[in-house]
Structure formats: C-alpha cells, structure tokens
Design a protein around this nucleic acid. Structure first.
Lengths: 360, 360
DNA sequence: GGCTAAAATTGGATCGATTCAAAAATACAC
DNA sequence: GTGTATTTTTGAATCGATCCAATTTTAGCC
C-alpha cells in the first residue's frame, strides 16, 4: 500500500537514479558520499530523483566490496548464541567488548552454530574485520577454523599454549594458588575440586593421568595451582577428589553427589568457576550443610552475580571486562603482530569461606 | 614470521589461484562452492594452488554482492552496545532472538552508536537482512532511520501507533490494569507511579497535560491502564503523583525522594518496569520502610531477576523471550506484509505486595 | 572576449566473487 | 570411425557501489 513498502520488485541502483537525474554514476555516488563537492543544483536534482524512485541509499553490500573494511568485529563461540546473553561470565566479557566497540563506533557480529559444519560455514562467511574467540569447549577447533580466514583474531580465557595465536587471559596457576592458599590458611585440610572440562565432552571423576593429558590448558593450570599451594601445606594432593563438570547445573550436582557420598567428605570446595561454586552453595544449602560453617566454597572468575548470592561468594576475580576491552582493541588496532597478554587476578574474600568446623 | 600471518600484502584472489592452477575462474569458483561438479584431478590441483598461495577461501565480501543475502539480522538501539548484555529485559529478549536465529543458522549483528549521526550511519551501513528495533528512548527516530534502509524491520515493546510499521509487544493497558487492580484489591488507596519516560530526555514530576501528549505510547498506555483500574475503585487519579524516571537508578531515587517527601506518602508504588521497582525496593529498605509491610511495590516486565530480589517482586510478566523469538521470525520469514502482534501479560504475585498497614 | 585557475563532472577500472549459456572434452554405442 | 549423450570447462556478464585521472564548466580578471 504505502509507496515506501512495495516489498516486491526493487532493483533501484545508484546507476538508475544517475540516469534518471541525467548525471554520471560518479556524480550520483558523490551526492551521497561527499555531497560537498557537487553543485547544489545537481545535488538536489539527484536527491529528488532518488526520492522519487524510492532509492534506499547506497547499498552497503556494494560499498563494502570497494571499501574492504566492514567495521565490525565477530565474536565466536561453539555454544549457542544465547550463551552471550545468559552466561554471567560471557555477559561481563561482552560488556567490556561493547565498550571498546562503542568507543570506535564498530559493530559486533555474534557467530555461533549448532553443529560443526554450520559453525565452519558461519565463520567462513562472517562479515567482520576480525574475531574474538570464546574458547570454551572445542576451542582448538574454533581456532583452526578461524585461522583459515586469515583475519586477525584473539583467543579469550584459555591461555592457548600455541604461541602463534594471540590470546588474552589471566594467570590461572597463580589464581588457583591464591584460592587454595586462602582455604588452607583458614585451616582446611580436606578438599575437593569441582573442575571445568579437561577435554571435549567429558564428565566425571578424573585420574591424575587424565589431568596430565588435559587438552584445555586453563583447566590444567588451575588444577596445578591448587595442588601446588596445597602441597606447601603438606597436604597429599593425590588423595583429593577431582570431579569434572561441564560448568552447568546438572554435572555439578552429580559431582557433589559423588564427592559427598564419601566417608570423609571435604570441608572445602575448590570450584573452577563461579557458576559451579554457586550451584554448589545452593546444593549444600538444600542438603542442610552450612556454608561456610560446615563447608567453605571458593569460586573462580569474579562474575557480578557472585557478590549477590547467598552467602556472597569468595572467589578469584579476573578483570573480565578489561580482558574484553583489550581483546576488542587487539582486533580494532590490529598491527599484524601476535599479542599475548596475561592479566592479574585477585582474591576476593566474601562470606562463603571460613574456618573448618571444630569437629572435623 | 609464521607463513600464515604475513599481515602485510595479501591480495590473493580467486582469480589468482585460477591462473596459477591453469583453470578459468569459473572452475576455480566451483571448486569451493560446488566441488562435486569438478573433476577430481582438477579439484585437487586448484586446492593445491590455493594452499600454496595462502588463499583464505572465497571472500564473503565478494560473494555477498552476488548472493544478496547476508544471513544475519541486525538488532538496533539508541542505548550503548553494552545495554544488550547488562539490562535484564534486553538480555531476556536477546535470548529469545538468539534462539530463533540459532534455529535457522542466522547471525546477529548488534547496532548502536553514541550520537545521532553515528547511529544513522551505522544503520545505513549495517550488513543485515533486516532489523529488530529496541525502541527505548528515541524510538521514533530509530524507526525513521531504519525505514530509509527499506529492509524488513520490526519494532519491539512500545506498541507503535503507526500502523505501517511491524511491531510486537504486549497489551500495556491490560497489564497496567492488572497491576493496579491487584494493589487496590489488597486495600491500597494511596498510590504513586514511577513512570518510564513520556518523551525524549525528560525527567521529573508529570502533569496530566504532559501525559496526554506523551510521545511514547507504551508509557502512556500503562498509565491509562493504572488509572482506569483505580478509577473503578473510586480513587481520584488526579491526585496520584506520577514521577517520570529514565529507568535507571539515579532518576528513580530522585523520584522516590520527591514522592516520600509528601505529607501523605503512598502505601503502594506502581513501577512501570522491574528495574525501577527493584531500585525502589532497595531504596525503601535502606530507609527502613518495610516492603510490603509499609509499602507495596509492583513492577512490570517480569525479568528473571525480579524473582530473585529481596523480597521477590510482584510484577506483570511479559512473555519477553517469546516476543524476541517472534520478532526474529518476522524478519527471517519476511513476507512483505506488516505484522503487528500483541501478546498477553500475566500478573505474577510474589512477596513485594500485600495489604496496606492498618494505621494508614 | 580571451585567458587561466579552480571547481565540477565524467566514465572507465576496480573491489571479489557467482552464474549460466555456450563450447569443449569425454564416454558410449554401433 | 562416426554420431549422440553426458560431463566438464570456459569466459563474459553481473552484483552495487567507489575511486581517480582526464575532461568539461564555471569563475575571475584584465
């Protein structure tokens, strides 16, 4: 109905209005991209023609090819797209990325896909100037896929061992050491670890052998840090149960069931993420186990929610938003070099950790 | 250093490897887009040439121009980009949009900008097949800007009066009626309204005159709903203080200060968003005013956080994620028609509302 | 009016691919 | 060995703009 929404046939190109206005396509182009260099009378004539023919303005598809730059950065993950809006860690990271993008006026393109094949296609065809990779599960594959594009990219979080890829993350060993040291110093001697995945698609108790061959360096480093600190307190780390979760509710609960089925349950839980820690706190509360009265819990990440849960979570805080900002800048100001940054972490003591019970 | 990251000179085009492999560019193109139709021997030769020359695969920029479809939908707002990841309402909406996009393999491009001019440019140059508009402040302008692109788009939330634009939202009048009715039925007689903006860049107490000329229909409708329901209880709506906030902490607090400075403060607060309501609850708690003992608070939206605050918030729940899903589908399955949908809302009674105090 | 400098306009080349009708190569049958 | 059917390959046309060197117009001045 309305003259503006024909919706059917619509091949109005710049060349069409150029012809209609009786000027060359060069001039027509200038009317839109550098209006100041075309004579007013001509400019108005072209604009009028554009208006009359329902021209939508220069099509960015055409401009893109010539210009080369998209002015958007892609953020990719193997998780579903909703991960970006639901996971607290991802959200905080995205807020940091957003900030850097806002500052330069760049856009953000979210890339993800259900299956491998679609993911590959989506990465190959994403219209972006570079990628930030959320290397959760399948991070290695994600890096490989992205490398094919030969665009700048930076891996987040899991410090990739591969020195040829740019990465920004934290010192996981140091952070984990801080966490374990905090609890050991409070007097704890019986620990359990609720871990992030060591490799793709695994879950369950972990043997030392499996730890050694861990695919995800971040997970491995955190465990190394825990054990290093505990060893210094004379604790036999070989006896500490390590349960691998998928950083979700179901697998964490399963881990807790296993761990607390033991004859000598732990008085302290080292959780490799705040999400795991918060599920643990909830599970313990539901079982009538006091936190930190009976069991202390420490998380890892320092997501905003951790301060709000009950009791507030003691955790190792990463500068999440800052990592995001730096990642975005790495792409935005790409200079052709590999950039690997390790940021510091911080122990944030809240109410979920305390001395072990006297009876224990 | 690494052969893959030269980063400097890199104009390897499909045509280059075609020449190197001694085939036409048509055949070279087929090797990547329809490998099954080219003879194996040739296919391998071309692939080898591509590998040798460090070809990154067909550049999507080139393909795009020919193909026409981007396979991504743009989500635009006048707020900063971080809004998508920080605001609970936006997040829930985005989760719904994500779901629909995941299902069809489409990507999401986030569009925003600090100032008007940049926003216009970003919308004009966004590489997307259509837009979903978060019409918060400046929604009208956003719609105008987007209309220029002549791509399918749908406005969210604020039921646009303009019947020529597709929109998905809820029945604000009905929802507000539900809210006011709930509180009035509990016995409340002294109300205050903490409102969303009525027009761009405003804040402060609102006169009836201003309400009538409200620019944002959503805000207006909610107020109409409140007043309608209260009138039925014989309450003089003209005496109800309406304070316009910007849906943020500062302006909401300012509103509360004003409202509770009155000689006869309200026993019930009608907040037009959960965010406002949650700030109000916090503010009241800090002043030692019991919720719902002294003052009842009801929100609007039904964001997930509302169930977790203390006390849990009574609110009017919109099917936020469903709105998002439908909006995305409207773009993805665009058929050239204007689509306007109004979804139902639901009163969710939690602990923030109760009978007014006896003394009042 | 004639001349020069400055401003505006032109139109071909380019960005990097895909498409498709026509031509060439190969396979098969007799 | 020839003719037909089938599979491959070719190369010009197209997608929609921007850029820029060359050309044409206009402006300014004597």
């Amino acid at each position: 109905m309305a003259s503006s929404t024909e919706g059917n046939t619509r091949p109005v190109r710049l060349a069409d209005i150029a012809k209609a206005a009786g000027v060359s396509h060069g001039t027509a182009s200038n009317v839109f991209s550098r209006p100041e260099i075309v004579r007013e009378e001509v400019r108005e004539r072209v604009k009028a023609a554009a208006e009359a023919m329902g021209y939508a303005g220069p099509d960015p598809k055409g401009r893109l090819l010539r210009a080369g730059k998209v002015n958007a950065i892609g953020v990719a993950t193997t998780e579903p797209l909703s991960y970006f809006f639901e996971d607290p860690f991802a959200r905080t990271m995205m807020a940091g990325i957003s900030e850097a993008c806002d500052a330069t006026g760049a856009g953000i393109a979210l890339v993800s896909a259900g299956n491998e094949e679609k993911l590959a296609w989506n990465i190959q065809s994403a219209l972006v100037d570079g990628f930030i990779l959320f290397c959760i599960e399948g991070g290695l594959r994600l890096v490989e896929l992205t490398r094919e594009r030969k665009l700048p990219f930076v891996a987040l979080e899991l410090g990739f061992d591969d020195d040829t890829v740019s990465a920004i993350g934290v010192d996981n060993v140091a952070g984990a050491r801080l966490a374990a040291h905090h609890l050991a110093k409070l007097g704890h001697r019986r620990f359990a670890v609720l871990s992030l995945p060591f490799a793709d698609d695994r879950t369950g108790p972990v043997s030392p052998e499996q730890v050694r061959t861990a695919v995800y360096p971040g997970t491995r480093d955190r465990l190394v840090g825990y054990f290093e600190a505990l060893s210094r307190f004379g604790i036999d780390t070989a006896g500490i149960p390590v349960y691998e979760t998928e950083n979700d509710e179901a697998s964490t609960r399963a881990g807790l069931e296993t761990i607390f089925a033991s004859a000598e349950p732990p008085t302290a839980i080292l959780a490799m993420s705040d999400r795991i820690a918060m599920v643990a706190i909830e599970w313990l509360a539901a079982r009538g186990i006091a936190v930190p009265g009976d069991v202390s819990v420490i998380g890892f990440d320092g997501v905003p929610d951790a301060a709000l849960c009950n009791p507030p979570l003691t955790t190792i805080a990463q500068p999440i938003a800052e990592i995001g900002r730096r990642a975005a800048r790495t792409i935005l100001d790409f200079d052709g070099t590999v950039r690997r940054e390790t940021l510091g972490v911080e122990l944030v003591v809240r109410a979920s950790s305390g001395s072990p019970p006297k009876t224990a």
